[in-house]
Design a protein around this nucleic acid. Structure first.
Length: 169
DNA sequence: CCCTGATTCGC
DNA sequence: GCGAATCAGG
């Protein structure tokens, strides 16, 4: 994956919206969170608008000389970025369900992370999209840390009285 | 152990 | 310029 203008633009947007690097990587697809962070720094937008965290960071002394064949002997098991790599699923069909043009409290319409069942955690939205019998099937997978089994958007759909739901369409 | 961003540096 | 490996921390 290369950083096309579109992808960079999306990166800027999502970063400005406060999404984490791994979430952005997931939505962009094809890149790791490290790649996103690296790009963010190269674009010089790490401060996210507000004053820089200015974390007191010390220098990292690196063992001089040796090239540390880390790949060979490292006991590291899996790539750190489960998020991004796990999400290289197809990206096309978003649920036809969209909120009506009602501007209620602005609920961000999620771009589903297209997770497979095995990729869900207790922090990801479990709203199913698509026909379970097709390859298109996936779960929303967006953050649901504080909203139970669904992200804020799908929680609204899931727990809405049928009457409300109908009126909205 | 899960996650976050920050940094370094071989490519 | 890119991003994995690593670091430092929540």
């Amino acid at each position: 994956m290369n950083w096309t203008d579109e992808r960079v633009e999306l990166l800027r947007k999502l970063w400005a919206e406060g999404l984490s690097a791994s979430q952005i990587a997931a939505q962009l697809g094809g890149v790791s969170r490290n790649a996103v962070i690296g790009k963010v720094h190269r674009l010089k937008l790490s401060s996210r608008g507000r004053a820089a965290p200015a974390q007191t960071r010390q220098k990292k002394p690196k063992p001089a000389g040796a090239k540390a064949p880390r790949a060979a002997s490292s006991p590291r098991s899996m790539p750190q970025t489960v998020g991004a790599t796990a999400l290289k699923v197809d990206y096309q069909s978003e649920p036809a369900i969209r909120p009506s043009a009602r501007p209620v409290e602005s609920v961000v319409v999620p771009i589903s992370r297209h997770l497979k069942l095995a990729e869900l955690t207790d922090k990801t939205c479990k709203w199913p999209n698509g026909d379970p019998l097709t390859e298109e099937f996936h779960f929303c997978g967006n953050d649901s840390l504080d909203t139970g089994p669904y992200c804020t958007y799908h929680a609204r759909l899931a727990f809405q009285p049928a009457s409300e739901r109908r009126r909205q369409r």
